[in-house]
């Protein structure tokens, strides 16, 4: 196996919040947003992270980018541990690792032209470049994502959502990072535009040999772009496996339920969604045993007391007590 470019070990993210429905002076609760997630990202590959809202998928990648406080665990980039406490090390990290966001319009400064927006990262990451070189680099990058020459001096509000996402991609890639974190990059876009952006990301990935982490809730999109998929539930990691295997033969009961619920665009396919009972438990409550046990159709007594660790399945890992059998 190649040495991984990004290696994430046992990451925890916790937020202290005032407990709802309690007195203001009562002890704050703790939301365990990410609960011990580990994975390795190989160079040039794509890891898809899926899960429902509130499962911690966005918080996880924000923590990796240094945008959310990591309360435990380590992240290695190229074998070097990342020190999130040091500002200069963080700047170094962000030269290598960039992010694109869900809302394409809100993530661009409305008072800057798109040429300024795309050239700005170079001021910090490439101080050796002259301003003319920076402008030229921005121009090349914008051209590469399909924004025409005559539009460079326009402002973000003059562009559509799909174009703004292209500009966001140009800004992230202008300093030639090696890892791109994508937080639901296409969920705000219409299907006809979504396909354009996915194709663009795939082309840029092979051109620039980028490694991608792609967070999304749309499993069809994730399967299309990913080599491996990681399934999260309530902050914890349920299963990870190569994309095709995970979609066709999910091992973990949660992955099975999630996949059976995806509507298939084929009127002849008789899908029978496996309807999960109940709702997502509050992340404020400390869960005993398996994170999924309150809704799992296959639970048995041991699930209530034992937190399953990630066990190897054929070509993947699953956090289920049934994984061995």
């Amino acid at each position: 196996m190649n040495p991984s470019i990004l290696s994430v070990k046992d990451v925890h993210v916790e937020f202290r919040v005032n407990q709802t429905k309690a007195w203001p002076w009562s002890a704050p609760g703790i939301v365990r947003a990410v609960n011990g997630v580990s994975f390795d990202l190989q160079p040039g590959k794509t890891l898809g992270i899926v899960g429902e809202s509130g499962c911690g998928k966005s918080t996880l990648i924000r923590a990796i980018a240094g945008l959310a406080p990591m309360t435990g665990g380590t992240v290695h980039l190229d074998g070097q541990p990342i020190d999130y406490g040091s500002k200069s090390r963080l700047q170094d990290l962000r030269r290598q690792l960039q992010m694109i966001f869900q809302d394409p319009i809100a993530s661009l400064n409305p008072r800057m032209t798109i040429r300024e927006i795309v050239a700005e990262p170079l001021i910090y990451f490439r101080p050796d470049l002259s301003s003319i070189d920076r402008t030229n680099a921005a121009r090349d990058m914008l051209d590469r994502v399909g924004i025409a020459d005559h539009q460079f001096n326009r402002f973000p509000h003059e562009f559509s959502g799909g174009q703004c996402q292209r500009i966001g991609i140009a800004r992230a890639l202008v300093a030639k990072p090696r890892v791109l974190l994508c937080d639901e990059p296409v969920s705000a876009l219409d299907v006809s535009i979504q396909a354009q952006v996915i194709n663009l990301l795939k082309d840029l990935q092979s051109e620039l040999s980028l490694s991608l982490i792609f967070v999304a809730h749309d499993l069809g999109v994730v399967r299309h772009i990913s080599d491996d998929i990681l399934v999260m539930y309530l902050g914890g990691m349920m299963e990870t496996a190569p994309a095709g295997r995970l979609i066709e033969a999910p091992h973990h009961p949660y992955s099975q339920a999630l996949l059976s619920a995806v509507p298939v665009p084929d009127p002849r396919a008789k899908s029978t969604p496996q309807v999960l009972e109940g709702d997502l438990p509050s992340p404020l409550e400390q869960q005993q045993g398996c994170l999924f046990q309150s809704r799992c159709p296959k639970r048995f007594d041991a699930c209530k007391t034992t937190r399953p660790s990630l066990e190897a399945t054929p070509d993947g890992k699953s956090a289920c007590l049934l994984a061995g059998s």
Partner: peptide
């Protein structure tokens, strides 16, 4: 243009 979860091989043809 819609990625089909059952047929990943197909390339997305954007409009």
């Amino acid at each position: 243009a819609v990625p089909n979860i059952g047929d990943p091989a197909a390339k997305l043809l954007a409009i």
